[in-house]
Simulated assay, not measured.
Amino acid sequence: MKQTYRSRTAFVLAWVWLAFVAFNVFDLIVRYSGKASLVALAVLGALTALVYAVALRPATVLTEAGLVGRNPFRTTFVPWASIEDVTVSHSINVHHGEEQVLRLWTPMSSARERAKAQRRGAPAPQRGRFKTEPTLTKGEQAAAEAFSGKTHADWVGDQIRERAESARRRDGQAAPARMTWSYDAIGVLVVAVVLVIAAIVVA
């Protein structure tokens, strides 16, 4: 079963930006004013390429065969049995091979999110003689304990760690990781840079 994790905030903001760019491109074409419009279109193109690379493309994908880490300019595939350890700080760090570390771009854990998770994990204060909090079911209590003090990045890190441990017990032998460059992101950025240079030359 394939599971994909992204930064929801970055993903939503990226699509808002694309809608903003589409409106402005239409407006610039309708009200074309020569060199100034060309420069504006080139700048929008460059910024959109950057948004694609850092907000739309990054993802952490859990497949049957292994972990796929899509960062802005490269994609790394690590078989489950090759993963030796997983640590979570600001980002999820996957240790594999000979002291190699794959730092996943998403999901990340901000200081604010971690502080919120710690508050969520703290026991609720008892106020007065009578309980005013609703009684949780066993399922709700189990879910609350599982997420107690953990951020989304911590939870995804746990999923990666569990799959890796299961694969090491089952397979034993670890295959090497594979890294490929993200030609789509690189190509988009190259086109954006060419547009900016052309706009500057024309202007």
Rank of each mutant, 00 (worst) to 15 (best):
L104R: 08
D85F: 04
K131Y: 11
T135L: 12
Q118S: 02
A14H: 00
I197A: 10
P176S: 06
E99Y: 10
P134V: 11
A203V: 11
F130D: 13
P79Y: 11
V25Y: 00
G34R: 13
G45A: 04
F20E: 04
N24V: 01
A142L: 09
H90Y: 05
V190F: 03
G45R: 01
T4Y: 08
D184M: 12
A14N: 00
A142Y: 04
V202E: 10
I92Q: 01
A174P: 00
A53W: 02
E133G: 13
F130A: 06
Q100E: 12
W17F: 01
A146W: 14
L41N: 00
A65P: 07
D184F: 08
A175K: 13
T48W: 07
R161Y: 05
V51T: 01
A36R: 09
P134Q: 11
L13S: 11
E145F: 08
L41M: 10
R74L: 11
D27S: 12
Q118V: 07
E133N: 07
A203G: 15
W155Q: 10
A164Q: 03
R163H: 00
G128F: 12
W17M: 03
G157I: 01
N71G: 09
G172D: 04
V202P: 00
A14M: 04
A36I: 06
I186M: 14
A14K: 00
G157R: 02
I200R: 04
A124C: 06
A122P: 04
Q141R: 13
V194N: 11
G97H: 02
P107I: 05
E162N: 09
V202H: 15
P72L: 02
A111M: 07
P72G: 02
T75K: 08
A53H: 02
A40I: 06
A36H: 14
K131H: 15
L47V: 09
D154Q: 13
V86D: 08
Y183V: 13
R57N: 14
R103D: 05
R103W: 09
V88K: 08
A143Q: 13
L189D: 03
G97Y: 09
H90F: 09
Q100C: 05
S182P: 03
N24H: 10
P125T: 04
W181S: 02
P123A: 13
V196E: 07
S91K: 05
H152I: 02
P107R: 01
R114M: 10
Q100G: 01
T48C: 03
V12D: 14
P79H: 15
A36V: 06
H152M: 12
I197T: 12
A203M: 12
T9L: 13
A117M: 11
A185W: 03
L13E: 09
A144W: 08
S33G: 13
Y32R: 04
T87Y: 06
I197Q: 01
G157L: 00
V51C: 06
I200A: 12
A164L: 09
I160E: 00
L41R: 00
V202N: 11
V54A: 13
M108S: 15
K2E: 15
A144N: 10
G128N: 14
A199L: 13
P123D: 12
T132F: 14
T76L: 10
S89H: 12
Q159I: 00
D85V: 03
V68Q: 14
P72D: 04
G69E: 05
R168N: 04
A177G: 14
E113P: 02
K116G: 11
R31D: 02
V88F: 10
T63I: 03
